[in-house]
Simulated scan of single mutants.
Amino acid sequence: MDLNVWWLAYPVLGAVVGFFAGLLGVGGGGIMVPLLTTLFVAQGFPFDQVVHMALGTSMAGIVLTSMSSLRAHHQHGAVRWDIVMGITPGILLGTFCGTFIASRIDTLPLAIFFSAFMGYVSLQMLINVKPKPSREVPGLVGLSAAGAGIGGVSALVAIGGGSLSVPFMTWCNVKMQHAIGTSSAIGLPIAVAGTVGYMINGWGAPGMPPYTLGYIYLPALVLVSAVSMAMAPVGARLAHTLPVPVLKKIFAGVLISLSLKMLHSLLG
């Protein structure tokens, strides 16, 4: 099949990512990485690079969506900028270094780590885990250390960090709506540092297809992002009419299924 024909799949993926992002307030990495990996394998892209390309492309896509989410939460006064300022240095360092670690991990172990983490995220959704507030927000050193850990894991699984930063802030006695809003702001430095890191680490990698910028596959990035940004408001509007708790459980099942499909395509 001609490569340009495969590009028709990317707007469909963008519609799904944008819809669920608006409906459930979740990032698209859990959907994008396994589906992009499967599409890249089907297109015959270098096997050793397909997961890295999916991670880099997903991370680049988060830049635009996190900017939109950040603006919306800031307008509602839900962003704790003191936390953002304190945690960002660690976020930038952890995410950037995390891309170097990811680039040195083989495709299959990286896919297994991603799938295991998506299993953790899905379990959070299924049982609706909310850590009990047990301490206050730490100082600069503590925030930087937490940011480095959140950023490092986010780089390995191409997420905006919400599944880690929201529980962390809730644990630190930050109100849930502020934790979610602040997490959206933290997603931007994660996305920027991750994008730069995956561009650098993929630069000059052997056998890469045309239209790549490091590990970022530009056709997928442009087509997925354009449609997902248009669909996010549709999902947000439906969030007030659809049974979101039920949909979260369905979405958790979808994440697990997609991760297993990715592993099957790689093992196959």
Rank of each mutant, 00 (worst) to 15 (best):
Q75D: 00
D82Q: 13
P131L: 03
V79D: 04
T88F: 08
A146D: 00
G94M: 11
F100R: 13
M125K: 06
V79I: 15
P46N: 06
L110T: 08
V84E: 06
G98T: 15
T107Y: 14
G86K: 15
P89K: 12
S154W: 08
F40L: 05
A116C: 15
V84G: 13
A78C: 06
H76T: 01
A148L: 15
F47C: 02
S115F: 14
S103F: 12
D48T: 13
S103Y: 11
G90R: 14
G56Q: 03
F117R: 10
V129K: 11
F114Q: 03
P109A: 07
T57Q: 09
V84R: 15
T107E: 13
L110P: 06
A111P: 03
F100V: 02
V50T: 03
P138T: 00
L143E: 01
A72E: 07
L39W: 02
M118Q: 15
G119S: 12
A111V: 10
T99A: 15
A60L: 06
I101E: 04
A60H: 02
M59V: 09
A148D: 05
F96N: 14
S69H: 01
P34Q: 05
S144P: 02
H52V: 01
G90E: 09
R80V: 09
T95A: 15
I87V: 15
G152K: 03
H76K: 06
R104S: 12
V137H: 11
A155P: 07
Q49P: 11
H74Q: 08
M59G: 06
L156T: 11
G139I: 00
A155W: 12
T37E: 10
V153D: 07
I83G: 14
R135C: 01
N128C: 08
N128I: 01
L36P: 04
I62E: 11
L143H: 04
P34W: 04
S103K: 15
V79Y: 10
L39A: 11
I83D: 12
A145Q: 02
S122T: 08
I83Q: 12
G86E: 14
L35Q: 04
M53I: 04
M125G: 02
K130L: 07
A111T: 04
L55C: 02
R80K: 11
V153L: 13
L110N: 09
F113R: 12
L156P: 01
G119F: 11
F100L: 14
A78K: 06
V121Q: 05
G56R: 13
L93K: 12
H73W: 08
A54D: 02
A148I: 01
I105K: 11
D106K: 13
F40G: 01
L156W: 10
L140R: 12
A102I: 09
T107Q: 12
D106M: 14
V129I: 09
M125S: 05
F45G: 03
M125H: 03
T57W: 05
T37I: 02
T65M: 02
G98Q: 10
G119V: 03
R135A: 01
V84Q: 10
G147V: 00
G77K: 02
H74I: 00
A155Y: 09
I127W: 13
E136Y: 05
A116E: 05
Q43H: 08
I62S: 14
K132P: 01
V84N: 10
V137Q: 10
P46F: 08
